[in-house]
């Protein structure tokens, strides 16, 4: 599992991904950790196949007992099917996930972890002095879906939005936006169901000050590429399967 520090300030953001030992038929995913002095939050902790390499990678940054919070943007298996294993590894942790998915996500096993349901209008996660905002992103692509915005680091973890289907071992950051478009087009057209939801999200996100847009698959957008992505996504017709 590769680890990249994408923000270093009073706290840190670490991206995990491009696991070399991942079975080929499983979609590659990006996991993120927000690390404060005594706590660690894992965003989109990943599928159960990824649990061992992910946990091992996190141990480079935090001890198990300081992993106090998990966040799942939505209910997909690539996001959170590892829940049953985290549940047995962490003795004092919370899962922040959409309220509407609670009874579904519990199928993965959630006994010792406390499920903190995120209401439809969003909320916050407080990690020591860091406050993260949970931005509604419903129907992008899941009907109950949130992104995580860190106003201090100016990072938006955007779940499946901004994702790209890439060859194994692709770089962590978008280097040439125009070349990157083709890797994103089909994914957004096919997985994102609603133009209306897309418009509402773009309106909301344009009001945020974002340096880094960090999706759950593919590469991270930095600086001007963030705006380029929003403009491109704004113009794209989605929901093409009907």
């Amino acid at each position: 599992m590769k680890m990249t520090k994408i923000y270093e300030g009073t706290h840190q953001w670490i991206m995990f991904g491009r696991d070399e030992n991942k079975p080929v038929n499983i979609i590659d995913s990006n996991q993120y950790a927000v690390r404060t002095a005594n706590r660690c939050l894992l965003l989109e902790p990943g599928g159960s196949e990824l649990f061992a390499p992910m946990m091992a990678a996190v141990l480079h940054h935090a001890p198990v007992e300081q992993i106090t919070d998990l966040f799942a943007s939505h209910q997909d298996p690539d996001v959170i099917s590892s829940l049953g294993l985290w549940d047995q590894a962490l003795s004092n942790a919370k899962l922040h996930a959409p309220a509407i998915w609670e009874s579904f996500l519990r199928h993965f096993g959630c006994e010792s972890i406390e499920y903190v349901p995120i209401p439809d209008n969003g909320g916050t996660i407080k990690l020591e002095s860091v406050e993260l905002q949970l931005i509604p992103a419903h129907y992008l692509h899941s009907s109950g879906n949130f992104h995580v915005y860190d106003p201090q680091a100016r990072i938006l973890m955007s779940g499946d939005v901004g994702s790209a289907l890439e060859a194994p071992g692709a770089p962590m950051f978008v280097e040439n936006f125009d070349l990157h478009i083709e890797k994103m087009r089909y994914f957004h057209q096919r997985w994102m169901p609603s133009n209306q939801a897309k418009r509402a999200w773009i309106e909301r996100v344009r009001n945020l000050d974002i340096d880094i847009l960090a999706p759950q698959h593919g590469r991270i957008f930095k600086g001007n590429d963030v705006k380029r992505f929003l403009d491109w996504f704004d113009a794209l017709q989605v929901g093409i399967a009907v």
Binding site: P53, A56, L59, H60, P63, V64, E65
Partner: peptide, 12 residues
Amino acid sequence: KIAKDAPYAQSM
């Protein structure tokens, strides 16, 4: 096994 070089490996 995988985390043997990690600084917090012991916490597992």
